[in-house]
């Protein structure tokens, strides 16, 4: 029954108690039950009440996605689970740092494309740049693809952070 149905991608937001091991519980659930993690971000968002927010992009059939949410909700340290993909419109952003090395025409072209993508230069030497780019995953993928011909050295990126649109929150 689990194998049928089309694969969907969902962005899930969790509010968790920021205590030792909470991330291991969440990740262990995914590995132990064979679910996919496409990206995962975590940071404390309220130091007073010691709450962290975890954003997970995952994929599976609708039934699997429902199961993932129910299993996450069952973790004692998880206080809220929201499926941003089905609960209405949301905004989602990655940050990427992209190092490109090159000289001459390639260097100029990299800088020009960075401008088109509204990437910021956060480090530069005479033969390299580090660009900072914020946007949806697809935009960042496209920029990285373009940099491959222009001396791409390495990439660090966060995975998605996401919030629902509108006035209400989790």
């Amino acid at each position: 029954m689990n194998e049928t149905g089309t694969i969907e991608h969902h962005t899930i937001s969790l509010i968790v108690d920021n205590e030792a091991g909470v991330l291991a519980r969440v990740i262990g659930l995914f590995s132990g039950r064979g679910y996919n993690i496409e990206s995962l971000t975590v940071a404390e968002v309220d130091s007073e009440s010691q709450r962290s927010r975890i954003t997970i992009v995952t994929s599976g059939t609708r039934m699997i996605i429902e199961q993932i949410k129910a299993q996450l909700d069952r973790i004692v340290s998880v206080s809220k689970v929201a499926d941003l993909t089905i609960e209405g419109p949301h905004v989602s952003r990655d940050i990427a740092l992209i190092k490109v090395a090159g000289e001459g025409e390639k260097r100029v072209e990299a800088l020009r494309l960075a401008d088109v993508f509204r990437a910021r230069v956060v480090d530069s030497t005479s033969c390299s740049f580090v660009f900072e780019l914020t946007g949806q995953a697809g935009k960042i993928d496209a920029f990285i693809e373009l940099m491959k011909d222009l001396g791409l050295v390495e990439v660090a990126r966060t995975g998605a952070v996401a919030l629902s649109r509108g006035a209400t929150g989790l």
Binding site: M63, Q67, R74
Partner: peptide, 26 residues
Amino acid sequence: NIEQFSPGSFKIHIDIDLSSINKNVH
């Protein structure tokens, strides 16, 4: 066999654990 499990019935599932629901059988 889940495909052939009680094919014609209306299934009501009472459980304290949400993750038990629709895990194996719809």
